[in-house]
């Protein structure tokens, strides 16, 4: 009994975790199916586009420019150890486009958008607004989830593209203003080194992270418990889950794109 108790506890934990994965997967598939089937709610979709895309631009831009600048400084300082300072433009470009751009934008969207979606939907659940939607013949998955997930799938790759460019520009500003690179050479080295596969992988990661961030916000909002505590827990869990899943998906996608 003493020996089997920990195993039983571990088994229960594993089963609960697998059940959670199953529920989230079914929810995501349901959301995707509602994106494809009418009725559609274009006004809700446009609102979601603005909230997820347009209003995330300042935070994405600031994150990217500082990260690009810091990356240039780190590569220059590290490169000096083996006389490789000249690779700053290339490494900033590849680092931003392949990794830091998508991951940082994904995490920023998780912090800003996932939390907001989860809190909004959880509050709607607690105040019976979701029940009210049903009584008004409106499917909550169609009205609340599908427009947000579709907007996430479309806007986050765009945000990643913008973040990549601004991040490279941050590196350019530091490289040319502080580290003595010639502007023309810096741009040429960046442009020559980047490949289409780098850009495609960046945008695919953006779409995946946008899907994860919005699905987790909607799922945890819909599953919220009662009261302020329920809303708080839904918000916290959604952000933590989205961040971890984004990092895990980043690893899987990097493996898929770059280790063949």
């Amino acid at each position: 009994m003493i020996l089997t108790a920990p195993l039983a506890a571990l088994g229960r934990w594993v089963l609960a975790a697998l059940a959670s994965v199953g529920r989230v997967t079914l929810f995501a598939l349901d959301a995707l199916s509602h994106i494809l089937r009418p009725p559609f709610y274009p006004r809700e979709f446009l609102n979601a586009l603005m909230n997820i895309g347009w209003f995330s631009l300042p935070v994405v831009g600031l994150t990217a420019i500082f990260t690009g600048g810091a990356l240039a400084l780190q590569i220059y300082a590290g490169g000096q150890r083996f006389s490789a300072e000249a690779v700053v433009p290339q490494i900033v470009a590849i680092g931003m486009v392949r990794e830091l751009g998508p991951v940082l934008v994904g995490l920023m969207v998780a912090a800003r958008v996932t939390s907001s979606i989860a809190a909004e939907i959880a509050t709607m659940k607690v105040t019976e607004q979701i029940d009210a939607l049903v009584t008004l013949s409106t499917h909550p998955m169609k009205y609340l989830t599908a427009p947000r997930v579709l907007a996430g799938l479309i806007t986050v790759p765009v945000l990643v593209g913008v973040g990549d460019v601004i991040g490279i520009w941050g590196g350019f500003l530091v490289g040319t203003g502080q580290l003595g690179f010639a502007p023309g050479t810096y741009i040429k080295n960046t442009w020559d080194f980047l490949e289409m596969a780098d850009v495609v992988s960046s945008l695919v990661k953006g779409a995946a992270f946008g899907g994860i961030a919005t699905v987790m916000g909607c799922y945890h909002g819909m599953q919220s418990g009662r009261g302020a505590q329920g809303v708080g827990r839904a918000t916290k869990t959604s952000v933590a889950a989205a961040a971890v899943l984004i990092l895990a998906a980043n690893f899987l996608l990097t493996n898929l794109f770059f280790t063949s």
Binding site: M124, T127, E128, Q129, D131, A132, V134, T135, L136, S137
Partner: peptide, 14 residues
């Protein structure tokens, strides 16, 4: 559902 109207306890306005 088109046959029903409902007033919720907290009004449940959007």
């Amino acid at each position: 559902l088109a046959r029903f109207g409902m007033l919720f306890q907290g009004a449940a306005l959007f």
